[in-house]
Amino acid sequence: MTRKVILFCLALLATPALAQGFAGMGTEAEGFAAPAPDPAFDFPADHGPHPDYRIEWWYLTANLEGPEGRRYGLQWTLFRSALAPGAREGWDSPQVWFAHAAVTTPEAHFFTERFARGGIGQAGVRADPFEARIDDWRMAGPSLDDMELTATGPDFAYDMNLQAEGPLVFHGDGGYSVKSDQGQASYYYSQPFYRIAGTLTLPEGGVPVSGAAWLDREWSSQPLAADQDGWDWFSLSFESGAKLMAFQLRQSDGSTYSSGTWIEPDGTTTALPDGAISAAPQARTEVAGRTVPTRWRLDLPARGVDVTVAALNPRAWMGVSVPYWEGPVTVSGSHDGTGYLEMTGYE
C-alpha cells in the first residue's frame, strides 16, 4: 500500500517550503524502525500506533445504500506521521496527525480535513479499548470489530456503527507487503468485512444508510522510489462474497508495478504478483482542472475477472491540502459488485 505513503508526502507538500522539507523523504529514514519479513502481529496492541515508524494510517471506506436504493460512499482516514521516531508528551512530540473525511452521492461530493499535533491530546489512537480520534472525529469501539464512526465537516457529518463479520486479512507475505523492485515494504492488513449502518447528515437532511465497509491498516518508514508518478488503487467487493485489493504504480518511464490480494468470502487470501492484474482507463473526466480516468477495465485472468469499474460520481475529487481522487465505484462484467477507487498523480 504504497499509495498512502505518497499521499502523505504530498499532503505536507502543500507549500513550497514543505516541498523542500519533505524532499528528505526520498532518502533513507534516519532512526526509524523498518518493516521486516515474517511479522508477528500482536493484537489488539498492533491496532494502536507505532510511533517508531515514520508513517501509519487507519483508512476506512464504505459503500452505502439509503432509502429507495440510493447509493453513497463514505471515507474516514486518520494518518500519523512522525518527524522523528518515538512518542513524547506535550507540543514537543514529533508525532503529527491529520485526517480526511468524505461523503459521496451520485451528484455531490463532500469532504474536509483535520490536522493535529501529537502529545497534547488533540488526536491519537489507543489500541484497547480501541479508539482512533482527531478533534471531534472518532472511530472507536470496545474493539476493532465493533465501532462507532463519526466525522463532521462544514457541510456534512456522519455517525455510523461498524460490525466486523469476518477475519482480518493480511496482505503480501502474512502482512509484510513488498512495494517495489527495490524492496520498499510495509506492514499491511485489512478488515474488509464490516457491516456498516448509521446516518449521514447532508445539506438536504439526515439520511439513514447501511452497507459494507473496508478498513486498511498500514505502517512503514520507507520512502517510495523517486520515479513513481502516482497510482491507481482498487478495493472491490463482488456479489459472490469474494473481494479484491489491487493497485498499480505508474512509473515515469510509462511502465507500471502492480500488486494485489484476492480474498475469498471466508477471508483466505492469495497474493497477486506484479503483472497478474492489468488495469486500463476507458473513460476520463475533467475535474478540478485535471483529467482523471473514472471508468476502468480490470483484468485478472487467473480468477476469470474481467470487469468494468465505473465511478458512482466521477467528480469525487478530494480538494484537500494535497488533492486526489477517491470515491465509490460500481463493478460490472464477469463479476458484479461495488468498491472504492483512489487515484493520485494526475496533473
Binding site: A17, Q20, G21, F22, G24, F98, R117
Partner: peptide, 26 residues
C-alpha cells in the same frame, strides 16, 4: 503559533524558504 492548525496565511513559514515546516515543528 501552531502551523498545523493555523488557517492559511498565518505564520511566516508559508512563505519562507529559509526553514521548513518539519524544522519549524521539530
Amino acid at each position: 503559533i501552531d502551523p498545523l492548525t493555523a488557517p492559511g496565511g498565518v505564520g511566516p513559514m508559508t512563505r519562507s524558504e529559509a526553514a521548513t515546516l518539519p524544522a519549524f515543528l521539530s
